[in-house]
Every structure is written in C-alpha cells, then in structure tokens.
Write a protein that binds this DNA or RNA. Structure first.
Lengths: 354, 354
DNA sequence: GATCCAGTCTGAATCGATACAGAGGCTAAC
DNA sequence: GTTAGCCTCTGTATCGATTCAGACTGGATC
C-alpha cells in the first residue's frame, strides 16, 4: 500500500497539517522543516497528496469537461472538432487545467449518468445534435458551462460562443443564387433524429429540431426565398454521421434523376468534400458540373478548392474555455458571437448552359 | 448549496447507505423504496453521488490520462497524434472510461507536479521527447501505464506498444539508397534538448538522447552504412518543434550550399511535408530535384504523394488504451510490436544526372 | 414450533486529504 | 516590563460518499 500523508507525518513526527502545508503552502512552515518532510516523503515513497482526496476537500477538481453530444470519436474525426479542441487545449494549458473527454454511451439514461459522474469543474459543450438533456444534467449539478450552439431557452448567466449560423449560411447561399443556380440541394447531417440517408421531405425548416442545423438550413432557405425559390423547391438531403462517405452515399443517387441539382449546399465542409468525392467517383464523361459549398473552412477545404464559410475554429474553442475558466463579470460579455466570412474558391461557378 | 446524499436520506427517512444503494446497487433494496428515494432526490435537486467523493471511497477514478511529453497543443497539431488519440478514445469509449488530457507546464518541477496531481487510474504516455521523468512520477504513484517509446530500462511488467523504429526507418533509407542517393540529409525533431534549428554536427547517432529519434536515425544510418556512406558523410538537420514551418526553415539553407543533398529523410511526415513546402517555395527555375521521405503515413501524406513509412496510428492508440484498461495476464503480451510498411509514392526518385 | 434463509435496511468505520482557529515562542516597540 | 505581532506548528472538524458486517422481518421447510 502506498503511504499516506499521515505516514509521512508520523515518520517526521509532525502533524498531518504540517505535511499538507509542506506541499500546498510552503510559506506556512520553515524551509528546513519542509525539507525534512519532503525528504522523508521521498524515502517512504509517498507520491504526494492524493489528487482525489484533495479535490474532495478543496471542492474543485482542476479540470474541465469537453462534451461532444455524440460519440467521442467524433471529436477526432471531424477536423473542425479537432481545431476546436486545440483551442480549448490552448486555453486550458494557460490555466493549468486538465481536459476531460467524456465518452457518452448510447441511450440517454446512460449518457446522463456519464455526465453526472464526470469529475470536472465545468463543461464546454460542443453541440453535435441534441444537447438539451446534457445541459439539463449540468445545470442540475450546478456546474458552469459554455455552449456552442444557439439556444432558445438560455438562462441569463449561461455562457455561449458561436456564430450567427443563419446569416453565415445565407451568405453562402446568396453567392450560389447569384451565380444563377435555382435547382439546389441542401445537404445536412442530422436533419431529424432517425431519418435515413438521402432525400428527405420536410414541410418546413422549422421542423428541424437541432438548432445548428436548423440555423444553417434557414439561412440557405432565406437566400433562395429572395430569388423566388421556395422551401418546397429545394431538395433536402440527409447525411447521418458527419463524414465524407456518408455524404457521398447520401447524395450520389441525386445526379441520376431527371433535372438534377446544379448546386449542393452542404452544412459542413466534411459533407461538401463527400459530395466532391461522389462526383469524382463518376466517370469523367458522366460527371455533372455541380457547384458545391461547405461550411467551417477546415484545412482540407483549401486544398480541395472548396467554396465555404469560414468560422474561426480554434478561436471558438479558446474562447469557450476562457469563458468557462474566468467568467466575465459582465453577463453580456459571456455571449460571444464570432465573425464568419464567405471564402469563394473553385468549387462554385455559374450554372452550366447544357 | 447542492443537497448531499445525506439530505436525501433525511428527506426519505432512511439511512445514507440505502440512498447510496439506490444509485449504485439497485438490487440491494426494494424497487418501491428505490423509486421513493429517486423521487425525493429529484425533488430536492440532488444531482447524484458526488463523483469525487465516490472516487475517493472506491479507490479508482474511472478515467485514464493521456500524457504528451510536450505541450498539449502537440496532441492536436500533429496529425499522427490526433489519430493516436482517436484510437485511445475508441478503446476508452468501449470501456466507459474518460480521457484526461494533462497539459504540462514548462519546467520539469512543475510538470512533475502536474502528473502527480492528475486524478486518473493510469496513463497512456505518448512520447514526444524526454519522458523519463514522467514515467518516474507515474511509477512513484504506483499507477499502471503504457508507453509508446522503446525504453532501455523497462520493468518486466511495464506495458508498451510501438514499432521497430530502427528497422522501419532502415526500410525507407534503403529505398532511397537503392535509388542511388549518396548525398543525403537526415531531418529530425528534437535531436538534442536545446539544439538550434539547422544542420548539426554529432559524433555519432548514439549521442541522441531520445529513443524514438535515435531509433529512426540509427535505421537511416544503417542503410547507408551498407552502401558505404558513413555517419560523418550524412548531414544531420535539427528541426525543433515537429511542424512544417520549422522543418522548412531548418532545411531551406541546405539547398544553396555546394554539393547539396539529393535526398532528405525526415523523421516524420510533418517534417517531410515541411521540406516539400521549402522546395515549393523556391522559384521553379531554381528548384532542385530532391527525394523526400517521411514517417508515419498521416492522411496528408497520400495527398502530397509522399513516400513514407506507414505505422498504424489509431491501432497504436487503441492497443495502448486496451493494454492499460485490461492488462493481459501474460506479461509478454503486454509488449506489442506493430507492423510497418514502406509506402512508395512520387516524392522519391532516382538521382538526377548532372 | 423451531430452523433456515432470502430479502431489506442500518450504523459505524473509512477513503486521504485541507481549512481554520488558535497555541506557543520569540522579537520589536513603547 | 508589558503589549503587540509575527512566525510555526497543531488539533479538530469536515469534504461526500461507499463498504461491510450484522439486525430485523416474514415466509418456507421439516
């Protein structure tokens, strides 16, 4: 058994408090005694105060949770998520705080349990899909958190960092509409909880339960409404699991239909890259000319010449962590909206005249 | 103040133990009482057992640490590290274990403290450079760990997952030597603790303190020794900070010297891509034809046409976590050597005549 | 009717530290 | 010669749970 702080105290012949002070408050005891204590600790093989016991007594842990409301693997698969994490990590590093990545088991009950059991001082919630339950648990625990998705029922003191999803998406769609496109497909991850991959009929964009997806789709729709193309005329395509193959598979069939879309607006770069994959997979003589836009501007987008909406990924993570780690006194400052920019590259162009 | 388990017990009129059982051992009390307790907890706003207190009493935490013996940002910047993390995450997910990413402050004393204070049940140590101190701290704490770098003084029960660095590197170098190259530069991160960027004179490869780097350089040297090119004839270049700009900067000057190298063997893909960057940055008319090899086969390598040595990144992470989470009964099985493969692409070719 | 047993629930001990009020000694100031 | 105040160090209460041996109840068994 590893020796405890008590053992060290006994060995040196001082009180437990003094040994504790030797580690945590060197100014509370003489340098010489401190040396004696640390020596004895070394001799006994005492590894320093037990972190768990310390956390219990102190009332805080020294680490923050990063919650992906999805499989944990998402965090490392999606390049945007990786950059976000990098930002969180940078801020955490400055604060000497550790990052706890909590995997969520399938099923809300178990997932709730996982969030309840996480030993952290707060959460950065990276919202993939539904997140309400997670926020509920965190609130119940009384822990601070920062969310990255717009929420309807946010409390006043609840912190947020994100972008104006709707306006950002609209800028991409306006660009495509300006190029003359009218037969357009909108490609999104998690449009509805359990919808299958492929085209999906939806009465209106307000039926989409997930705020981020809904925001972007609404922005797309906005721009086309302005040029006289209504929601019903847009083809909505669901690509569950935000990844390239899924997107490619979901969109592939579309180009063989009569009057195929001349443009695809994707809800993320990863999906957009999947569309490009699907196009590249076709023989050159049967490859339609399709404009494609993404969202995020991940590193791969530039190489692929993808027109996209840039949002600052690392910045988002960094600010999320900072809002969590030292909350602004002013509640309004806890609500950060980051700038976005349309980045036009080669993947969009005028409608081919056929 | 959030209610405690005691408060719930008082509210229902049962003992603390029973409330505890309601959460952790449902079979220890009647279903009806359990319901009453959970109801009361809900009413009181009790968020479930405090994770820290639970960990203290139970003696384990339910999370493992991932330690990058470097800045934490490394973990998200280096694509190989990201894939490794993804593997660790996948295994952790299956085990319902969380991942704690511990940032290391500069300075060994503070860094040691950080490892001492991490509330985890074990560590996956991703070795960037020097790691000995970290392993010492972990051993002192009596925690299990899995390391990814070959070590000289590994204990019998100490787990490891990695590759035969030397043989793998040798395969790349043999390929380049086979193409006829004799004037060759070796590019590596962290050759010596504080060496500046650029060419570095080193009496022998055994002077390199970091096992991974030493292993790869030794493999490179092996292959060239075989064709009669000794260590002294190879140009060793240091690129501190395993990233593209650093590599580009470190190597750039080399091509303007008399008798510049016709091949660069890099210790990682990231460095190799930096070399390609440096070459691409030169005007076309003054761009030497240089063969370049990398190491790791990160996703970007394929796109860049980089000849490299493939090692299974996610696999490495996955196995590291699995060795940690359920240790094999057989000690020998705790020592896993993964396969590597030379992947020849466009970045290597015969020596240009003239 | 005694015995056994399974199913429920309780109480005290324990996990390993930290916080805080205060005791004691010693120097400096008035 | 006090009084004040600083520097060290101690003792006790406390953080919030889990564990485990055992008490109690009621029904089945012989």
């Amino acid at each position: 058994m590893k020796p405890t702080l008590q053992a060290v105290a006994d060995a040196v012949g001082v009180s437990r408090s003094t040994v504790s002070n030797a580690y945590s408050r060197p100014d509370q005891l003489s340098a010489s005694l401190r040396e004696r204590i640390l020596d004895a600790a070394r001799q006994l093989g005492y590894p320093g105060p037990n972190p768990t016991a310390r956390s219990l007594r102190r009332g805080f842990v020294g680490s923050i949770g990063v919650l992906f409301t999805s499989q944990l693997s998402y965090a490392f698969t999606d390049p945007f998520a990786v950059r976000f994490l990098a930002g969180v990590g940078a801020a955490a590093e400055r604060h000497g705080t550790s990052l706890l990545l909590v995997p969520l088991p399938p099923g809300v009950t178990d997932a709730r349990r996982a969030v309840e059991n996480a030993a952290v001082d707060g959460f950065c919630v990276y919202c993939v899909a539904d997140e309400q339950w997670a926020l509920d648990v965190i609130r119940q625990r009384g822990l601070p958190f920062v969310s990255t998705a717009p929420r309807d029922n946010a409390g006043d003191d609840e912190r947020f960092v994100g972008i104006d999803e709707r306006a950002a998406a609209r800028s991409a769609a306006a660009h495509v509409a300006g190029l003359g496109h009218r037969r357009v497909a909108l490609l999104a991850d998690s449009v509805l909880p359990d919808a299958p991959a492929g085209p999906l009929a939806l009465a209106g964009v307000d039926q989409v339960p997930y705020p981020t997806t809904r925001g972007r789709l609404t922005g797309f729709a906005d721009a086309f409404a302005e040029v006289g193309v209504g929601w019903a005329e847009l083809t909505l395509v669901n690509a569950p699991g935000n990844n390239r193959p899924a997107a490619a598979a979901a969109i592939a069939g579309l180009f063989d239909q009569p009057a195929p879309p001349t443009a695809v607006l994707a809800g993320s770069d990863v999906l957009a890259l999947g569309v490009l994959d699907a196009l590249a997979a076709r023989p050159a003589h049967d490859r339609p000319i399709v404009s494609v836009t993404g969202f995020d501007d991940v590193p791969e987008a530039a190489a692929a010449g993808l027109t996209t909406v840039r949002q600052p990924a690392e910045e988002k993570g960094r600010i999320a962590a900072e809002l969590l780690l030292d909350p602004p006194a002013d509640a309004a400052a806890g609500h950060v909206l980051l700038p976005t920019a349309l980045v036009v590259r080669d993947s969009t162009g005028p409608v081919p005249r056929s």
